[in-house]
Write a protein that binds this DNA or RNA. Structure first.
Length: 479
RNA sequence: GGCGGGUUGGCGGAGAGGUUACGCAGCGGAUUGCAAAUCCGUGUAGACCGGUUCGAUUCCGGUACCCGCCUCCA
């Protein structure tokens, strides 16, 4: 069995992964707050932990992994969005959740086993909060319920901070009702017009952190294997989750392994609206950047390092994927062939590929291995390559490889009349070549190139494909 | 100020205490009427200063610079 090693933020070391229960490997990843389109940075953890999900399924069996990624649908940003747009909160969260799932699906992200909505777990949150009050880890003050950080000695262990240092930093909001400035809200009052639920402390809504503690416990148990998210969540979000869960479930650790992906930059700078380099996944898709290309770029830097999105990387990823899809297409890969290979026992992971990927999710290393594997000369020899590509989630559709490679056109892009016209021009060029009239042959090819049609001589004939700058309007004049 | 991460060849980007990362670009070659595509081959590294070691880009210490978090944020 492939040995998985993961960098554990909690111990700051790479450790051999040993699941609590190999029959049910459990992972929780912090999902989106649904108030707007997912930006590119949001996509990184979704893709990274999707690869981990796929790897775990590969190693432990598809039916033996439970992956939970929550939807935060109660939050002040959502309330603000509703207030400014005049729309209902439910409309906004429902629409945004749909967008998120669409966009992630376009990036080849599989649906997690469970996608709990915070609003569906209010009762569990209230129960957990009540328990924490009872055990002396939380207190009620002016309609709020706060977690008392001083009641949990290990507070700050994950992010390497001490309560004293943080207070010294003195950038915390000091509310008069807090016993300690670092105490954080688990429940707060909701005025009329804002989402609220009845609770022992009056009508209110949960703080941000409690939802993850409650939902993880409900769906994965008091102790589970992996908890993931962006490293900006390490403090305070994950620290607070740990505090709540540890105190609610004494004696067990919430998660065995904590994983954090590094942040994303754009052209060397932090993505921000003011710099004008802020964009959403949808923006890229609408510009015609295929989801697999975005995914490939996201995976070509190790998740633990800051990653820079650049135009150059986008172009290189596009070229690489096209080449790879063309190789598979040329060797007849289709869903049917994959199934045949599977039945013949030839649909196997390349051991080195799997080993590299299992080494703390080294996707860039795995991609490097794919370059080597791509040099196979027969379909069976390429099975490991195809399998690896699939494990990275880079094959959207085995039956559309030609199209994905840019060899065969997507029908909707190329008008019906183009085919016969191009074929006719190629036939005339073929005749010219046969007559050794190179000037005429080159003139015809230049004509096609000008319309963005790539001409490739193959043996005695020639094939064509619409290129990136394909423009039917130029051909229109030739009809 | 506190905590954490980084610095690899023209560019991107990995692993490993000693043996080719890999890709792109470049260069040379094969193929081609010429292109394109494809294939083969190939050069260039490890911020700086010390230490440990037979041997360090890889471990340890220090310096410089960069970045993130400490406030909603993936």
């Amino acid at each position: 069995m492939t040995e998985i090693r993961l960098h554990n933020s909690k111990t700051r070391r790479k450790e051999v992964f040993v699941p609590l229960d190999p029959g049910n490997v459990r992972m929780y990843v912090c999902g989106p707050t649904v108030y707007d389109r997912a930006h590119l940075g949001n996509a990184r953890p979704a893709v990274v932990f999707d690869v981990l999900f796929r790897l775990l399924r590969h190693v432990y069996g598809a039916g033996h992994v439970t992956y939970v990624r929550n939807i935060t649908d109660v939050d002040d940003k959502i309330n603000a969005r509703a207030a400014e747009s005049g729309r209902s909160i439910g409309d906004i969260t429902e629409e945004t959740t749909g967008w998120y799932l669409e966009d992630m699906a376009a990036l080849g992200v599989m649906e997690p086993t469970h996608m709990p909505r915070a609003t569906g777990y209010i009762a569990q949150m209230i129960a957990m909060i009540a328990g924490l009050i009872e055990s002396g880890h939380a207190y009620e003050a002016e309609g709020h319920v706060l977690f008392a950080v001083e009641s949990y000695a290990a507070y700050g262990a994950l992010s390497g901070r001490s309560v004293d240092d943080m207070i010294a930093g003195a950038r915390v909001e000091v509310a008069p009702y807090k016993r300690n400035p670092m105490d954080f809200v688990m429940w707060k009052p909701s005025p009329e017009g804002l989402p609220g639920w009845d609770s022992p402390w009056g009508r209110g809504r949960p703080g941000w952190h409690i939802e993850c503690s409650a939902m993880a416990a409900d769906l994965l148990g008091d102790s589970f294997d992996i908890h993931g998210g962006g490293n900006d969540l390490m403090f305070p979000h994950h620290e607070n989750e740990i505090a709540q869960s540890a105190c609610a479930h004494p004696g067990v650790e919430m998660a065995q392994v904590w994983m954090h992906n590094e942040m994303l930059m754009v052209e060397g700078k932090k993505m921000s609206k003011s710099l004008g380099n802020f964009f959403t996944v949808r923006d890229l898709l609408e510009q015609g950047v295929p989801g697999e290309v975005i995914r490939f770029v996201l995976l070509s830097t190790h998740y633990g390092k800051p990653m820079d999105w650049t135009e150059a990387k986008r172009e290189e990823a596009t070229a690489t994927l096209k080449r790879w899809y063309a190789i598979l297409h040329r060797h007849g890969f289709t869903a049917r062939l994959v199934e045949t290979l599977r039945q013949g026992g030839q649909w196997q992971a390349d051991a080195e590929f799997a080993g590299v990927l299992a080494n703390d999710l080294n996707a860039p290393g795995a991609i490097a291995r794919l370059h080597v594997l791509s040099k196979g000369h027969t379909a069976p020899a390429l099975a490991g390559f195809a399998h690896g590509l699939d494990m990275l989630g880079l094959v959207a559709d085995w039956d559309r490889l030609g199209e994905m490679a840019g060899i065969a056109a997507a029908e909707q892009v190329v008008p019906d009349w183009v085919g016969p016209l191009v074929e006719d021009l190629l036939a005339r060029r073929q005749a010219a070549r046969a007559g050794r009239d190179w000037a005429e042959a080159d003139r015809l090819r230049d004509l096609l190139n000008a319309a963005g049609v790539n001409v490739t001589d193959v043996g005695g004939g020639a094939s064509w494909s619409p290129g990136e700058r394909f423009d039917p309007a130029v051909l229109e004049a030739l009809r």
